[in-house]
């Protein structure tokens, strides 16, 4: 591929080509897609785990791939249905955090007068001890999936805001933004047409990373017993294992949900790394080739 070829191709396509060339990126996207499929097709894969079974704390076998828990319920089914809740909380919290974070980050970069105040707000939020506060809020508000989404989002947006602000700061000073102002373009137009597109790659990375962190937070809160008792999540499966005391005697009760969390977080991290590398021309080495 020559330099002239590259110049003729849209940046989005170039990024995609570079991303596709990275096996780690493709594998991680594959894993994420698989998890999403499992979440969507949960009713087709396994019956909803309810009631009780006769075989209590049975080791993994052909009948129960991941073994059974202390009430004889199939852990494979719990992990499959847990994918739903975990991903829903992850995506929900991430979406909410992104909206808040982008609004604050772009606002701070674009409206200079707000910068100090919003910067301070972000700093304060970042310096708070997140886990104890999450525990406190979740405990007071009572357990439900929507509570978890809100609680996790409320404590996740400052990191997004900080990254978005630092990305937006140099863009605000670029000449085409000044030109837009000179032409009398309203702030909203400038923000939507110039600033947001410029920070969108950061947002994309943030969505994936925040989602995976949100899944971890959800698992953590559920593990502490603050999850929604009416729905299965990976953290709930772990919590049940710990609470019933099965953790020390029946390894399968903890291993499989832990692996699911591990797969999701590693895949999300690798995916965002690969994307970041792919859209960075210096890494892509277009110019040299």
């Amino acid at each position: 591929m020559s330099g002239a070829d590259v110049a003729g191709v849209a940046p989005r396509v170039r990024t995609w080509r570079a991303f596709r060339a990275n096996p780690l990126g493709m594998v991680s996207v594959g894993m994420l897609l698989l998890l999403v499929m499992v979440a969507l097709a949960a009713p087709l894969i396994a019956d909803y785990p309810r009631g009780y079974g006769d075989d209590v704390l049975a080791a993994p076998s052909s009948a129960h791939w991941f073994g059974t828990d202390n009430l004889g319920r199939d852990i494979f089914a719990q992990v499959v249905w847990g994918t739903r809740t975990s991903l829903a909380v992850g995506l929900g919290a991430s979406a909410l955090a992104i909206v808040l974070g982008v609004a604050v980050g772009v606002g701070a970069a674009y409206f200079k007068r707000l910068d100090t105040a919003l910067g301070m707000l972000v700093d304060v939020m970042l310096s708070l001890p997140v886990l104890p506060l999450m525990i406190l809020v979740a405990a007071l508000a009572g357990p439900s999936v929507s509570t978890l989404v809100v609680v996790i989002a409320v404590f996740s947006w400052p990191e997004v805001a900080r990254v978005v602000r630092s990305q937006a700061m140099p863009v605000v000073t670029l000449s085409f933004v000044d030109a837009a102002h000179v032409m009398g373009a309203p702030n909203r137009w400038v923000l939507v047409r110039h600033i947001l597109p410029a920070v969108s790659p950061v947002i994309t990375v943030s969505v994936v990373l925040t989602a995976s962190r949100a899944v971890l937070s959800e698992a953590g809160l559920s593990f502490l017993g603050l999850g929604d008792p009416s729905s299965w999540s990976w953290g709930t499966v772990l919590y049940n294992a710990q609470r019933s005391g099965a953790l020390s005697s029946s390894w399968w009760t903890a291993l499989f949900p832990s692996l699911a969390i591990l797969v999701l977080v590693v895949a999300a991290t690798l995916c965002s790394l690969a994307y970041n590398d792919a859209r960075n021309p210096r890494n892509r080495q277009d110019a040299i080739r």
Binding site: S248, I261, T269
Partner: peptide, 19 residues
Amino acid sequence: ASHRIAVVLSAAVVAGLAA
């Protein structure tokens, strides 16, 4: 990111192998 992976891995190991 790699630091994060390490933390996650070790957390998983702790959770899985608490025994």
